Amino acid sequence: MASTKSESYFVFMNYDPEYERLRADRTKKGTNELDLYLSRKHNELLASTLEAGSYKKTLSLVIVDGFSVDITEDQANVLRSAKGVRVVEKNQELA
Rank of each mutant, 00 (worst) to 15 (best):
F12N: 05
F12D: 02
F12S: 12
F12M: 10
M13W: 10
N14D: 06
N14V: 06
N14A: 11
N14F: 08
Y15D: 09
Y15H: 11
D16H: 02
D16N: 04
P17G: 07
P17T: 07
P17A: 09
E18A: 03
E18K: 07
E18Y: 09
Y19N: 00
E20I: 02
E20V: 04
R21C: 03
R21Q: 05
R21M: 03
R23A: 14
R23Q: 12
R23P: 07
D25S: 06
D25G: 04
D25R: 05
D25H: 02
T27M: 00
K28Y: 08
K28H: 09
K29S: 07
K29N: 08
K29Q: 14
K29D: 07
K29I: 04
K29V: 06
G30Q: 03
G30M: 00
T31I: 10
T31F: 08
T31G: 13
N32S: 11
E33I: 00
E33Q: 14
D35V: 11
L36A: 13
L36E: 11
Y37C: 03
L38D: 08
R40D: 09
R40G: 06
K41N: 15
H42R: 07
H42F: 11
H42T: 05
H42N: 10
N43F: 12
N43V: 04
E44K: 08
E44T: 08
E44D: 15
E44S: 06
L46H: 07
L46K: 07
L46Y: 09
L46A: 00
A47F: 08
A47E: 15
T49H: 06
T49L: 02
T49I: 00
L50N: 06
E51N: 13
E51S: 11
E51W: 10
E51K: 14
E51I: 04
E51Y: 12
A52P: 02
G53R: 06
S54W: 11
Y55Q: 00
Y55E: 00
K56L: 15
K56Y: 14
K56P: 02
K56W: 14
K57R: 15
T58I: 10
T58L: 09
L59S: 15
S60R: 02
L61G: 12
L61I: 15
L61V: 15
V62I: 14
V62Y: 13
I63C: 13
I63Q: 13
I63N: 10
I63Y: 11
I63W: 08
V64L: 10
D65C: 04
G66H: 05
G66M: 00
F67A: 03
F67P: 01
S68N: 15
V69E: 05
V69Y: 12
V69G: 03
D70T: 12
I71Q: 01
T72P: 00
T72W: 01
T72Q: 02
T72R: 01
D74N: 14
Q75C: 07
A76M: 05
A76T: 01
N77P: 01
N77Y: 12
V78P: 01
V78M: 03
V78Y: 13
L79Y: 04
L79N: 04
R80C: 07
R80G: 02
S81M: 09
A82T: 01
K83C: 06
K83T: 13
K83D: 14
K83S: 15
G84P: 00
G84L: 07
G84A: 04
G84M: 05
V85R: 02
V85I: 05
V85L: 03
R86V: 14
R86D: 15
E89R: 14
E89Q: 12
E89G: 04
